[in-house]
């Protein structure tokens, strides 16, 4: 976000930032996202590799939480079945606002390979919870996870916090 670059600004020898509080808050929010890992299938294994030494997902400031109440976003990795769908909904509802959803893999995007004859597969997790970022792939490569995470950070850092309704033209 380049917030720190502003420290070079020549007011009184530097060290002062002039900016919006909103930007500061969003900067903080986007760089420290805690997530609830909802590992369901093959994509979760790729996500485990993503978490391990080679790719180091934590460099995005993400910390895995096991409780939805402490999580900023939920990562749905894998095939959502009907037996599981209710549980996802419950966990999503337990998360505190503001909350985000990343849907990982073709399965949770749209049903993936199981879209046609999968009588027990929910064709896309967006049928039950709102999704912010879709990561395509079956399974997505670790680079795709990185891209997806960066997209989420971008989204968070451009969000309106104050006077939201007015600025978005709702009234």
């Amino acid at each position: 976000m380049g917030l720190l670059n502003k420290l070079d600004d020549p007011y009184d020898g530097g060290g002062i930032i002039l900016g919006k509080v909103e930007e500061l808050l969003n900067w903080g929010r986007s760089k420290s996202d805690w997530y609830l890992h909802f590992g369901l299938a093959c994509c979760a294994i790729e996500f485990m590799a993503m978490n391990a030494s080679h790719f180091d997902f934590m460099r995005f400031g993400t910390i895995p939480r096991t409780s939805p109440r402490q999580a900023d976003f939920i990562m749905v990795t894998g095939t959502v079945t009907f037996k599981m769908a209710d549980r996802i909904k419950v966990l999503y509802e337990q998360m505190a606002e503001p909350k985000y959803v990343i849907s990982v893999g073709s399965c949770s995007n749209c049903g993936g390979p199981y879209w046609e004859h999968g009588y027990h597969v929910l064709k896309g997790v967006d049928k039950i919870i709102p999704v912010d970022v879709y990561i395509p792939g079956c399974p997505p490569r670790p680079e795709a996870f990185e891209e997806g995470m960066m997209k989420l950070q971008e989204k968070i850092s451009h969000q309106a916090i104050f006077n939201k309704r007015k600025r978005l033209g709702i009234e």
Partner: peptide
């Protein structure tokens, strides 16, 4: 019983569309 040859999946399950 889904693996019977004459099985057709239900339309809805718990308010979610099956196919």
């Amino acid at each position: 019983y889904p693996l019977r040859k004459d099985y057709t999946a239900p339309e809805m399950y718990h308010g979610m569309k099956v196919s």
